[in-house]
Each structure stands twice: as structure tokens, then as C-alpha cells.
């Protein structure tokens, strides 16, 4: 499971303040915590700063990579901001995200074409947000086809089938889960990823639902997640669910997590 630590996101008020104050120490401490808790990638998002997003995104990448040896997941819909951040990024970045929305597709594709970047392919189009498995498959097929034609390797594509809130429609959970299964079965070697906290929007006990939903998604084949790695129960669930889903040879991960006391919650 590829873990993308989601904490350095300017839509969180405290982080926005640290970014504005250029508080490098705090940002670096958050990145270090995420890495120690098991993150493979550190997501960086400065989206709330209209006009200043490229500058801040670049600062985040430089600041984080000065402190920790980890690649970043550049989280922006704006190609200019992504390119500015990529110019200073060390290692293989992840781009979050390209979608089938024409403007975004046309502008992001040249950035990822022929590269080794990991690319999040978000199932969204100009026709709106997908609701059913079929909606998602139709978008995913076009996106994957376009990425492959532009020399992005299948194993670098992370399809995000788009989680929508259960509050609004009680089929949104199951349609998402079935889409994960179908994408993984149809495109052997591809990956799926999601930020799944949307599922519990508008409901109480959100962490509880998110933790359960993660287990259900892993059972369907999800192998990437944008999560808060400091949520110990979430991380324990991921490790346990992957072992149960047959992804953990000789239960080695499970056992080393046990010895590292990751199940002592």
C-alpha cells in the first residue's frame, strides 16, 4: 500500500498559517512525523492561496525535502503551480491529479507525458461527477488510454475513482468499492488510490467510518491511500487489512508492525 500523508494541506487552518508565516520548522516537523508514521509520499497543497499557490508550493517542496528524504505528492489542479514545484523537487514526484476535464487534461498531460512521475488519474469529467461503476469505468478507460499513449507507464498510474459522501446517496460507498474492484481487474498492474474521508462527510464519528471504509476498499484491491498517517487506528487497519487480503507474504509486515507496537492503540 502506497501511503500519501495528507497533513500538509493549506485547507487546514493551522497549516495555512504556517505556510503564510513561512514557518519552516513546523512544516518540517509535520513531514517528519508523517514519514515516521509510515508515509511514502508527503502531499503538499497550497491551493487556498490564490495567486500565490506556485510560490508557496515551491517553498513547501524545498522546505520539506531539506529536512526529510521523501518524495512529494504535488497536489494542485493548476499546471503552473505544479511545474514551479517540480522544478525544485528531488526524486520521483507524484502528480495529484490529472482528470478528464478538458482544460485540466490538456494542460496536465504535457507535464506528465514521457515521465516516470506517478500520476493520480481522477475519475472526473466535464460531464460531472461519476455516480456509478459504469460512469467511473468510462472515465477511467479514457484517462488510462490517454496516459498510456503519452508514454506514462501503466504501473505509474493511480486511478482515483472519486469518493462521494454517503450522506447524499446511500449507494455512493458501494459504487466506489465496486469501481475499485473493476479497475484493478480490468487493467492488470495499475494502481488505485483515494482520499476517502469524503465518504463520511456530514456524519458523526467520521474517523470510525473512514477506518472501516479503508478496510472495505483494501478488500476490493485498493493499493494507495491519501490519509493522515498519524491516525494510528487507520494505519493499523491498513496493515491488518492488507495481510488479510493476501498482500503480505508470510505475514511479515503484520509481524514487524506488531513488534513495532503499531497495534497498541
Amino acid at each position: 500500500m502506497l501511503i500519501i500523508g495528507e497533513l500538509i494541506n493549506a485547507s487546514r487552518k493551522a497549516i495555512a498559517n504556517h505556510i503564510e508565516n513561512q514557518d519552516a520548522n513546523t512544516i518540517q516537523a509535520v513531514a517528519r512525523d508523517e514519514l515516521n508514521a509510515g508515509a511514502d509520499y508527503i502531499d503538499v497543497n497550497a491551493g487556498v492561496f490564490v495567486g500565490k499557490e506556485p510560490e508557496y508550493l515551491k517553498w513547501l517542496v524545498e522546505t520539506i525535502q531539506a529536512a526529510v528524504e521523501a518524495p512529494c505528492c504535488i497536489d494542485s489542479p493548476d499546471p503552473a503551480a505544479i511545474e514551479t514545484a517540480l522544478a525544485v523537487h528531488k526524486g520521483t514526484a507524484m502528480i495529484n491529479s490529472i482528470s478528464l476535464e478538458k482544460d485540466r487534461y490538456d494542460k496536465l498531460m504535457p507535464i506528465v507525458a514521457g515521465t516516470d512521475f506517478k500520476v493520480v488519474a481522477l475519475c472526473m469529467s466535464d460531464d460531472g461527477m461519476p455516480e456509478t461503476v459504469e460512469d467511473r469505468m468510462a472515465i477511467a478507460e479514457k484517462l488510462i488510454d490517454g496516459l498510456l499513449k503519452n508514454n506514462v507507464k501503466l504501473e505509474n498510474i493511480y486511478v482515483d475513482p472519486l469518493v462521494q459522501p454517503l450522506s447524499v446517496n446511500n449507494t455512493f460507498g458501494v459504487e466506489f468499492l465496486d469501481a475499485i474492484e473493476k479497475i484493478m481487474a480490468t487493467f492488470k498492474g495499475i494502481h488505485t488510490v483515494c482520499g476517502l474521508s469524503n465518504i463520511s462527510y456530514g456524519l458523526p464519528n467520521r474517523m470510525f467510518l473512514n477506518q472501516l471504509f479503508m478496510v472495505m476498499a483494501i478488500a476490493k484491491g485498493l493499493d494507495g491511500a491519501i490519509v493522515n498517517p498519524l491516525d494510528k487506528r487507520m494505519m493499523a487497519n491498513i496493515i491488518g487489512a492488507e495481510t488479510l487480503a493476501g498482500k503480505d507474504e508470510f505475514c511479515a509486515n503484520y509481524l514487524s508492525a506488531y513488534r513495532a507496537k503499531r497495534f497498541e492503540l
Binding site: S167, V168, L203
Partner: peptide, 10 residues
Amino acid sequence: RGTLFLPELV
């Protein structure tokens, strides 16, 4: 007040 939730509001 957080005693009714979004699905109930809808």
C-alpha cells in the same frame, strides 16, 4: 447544534 446530520437535513 450537531444533533441532526446531513442525511436527515436532506
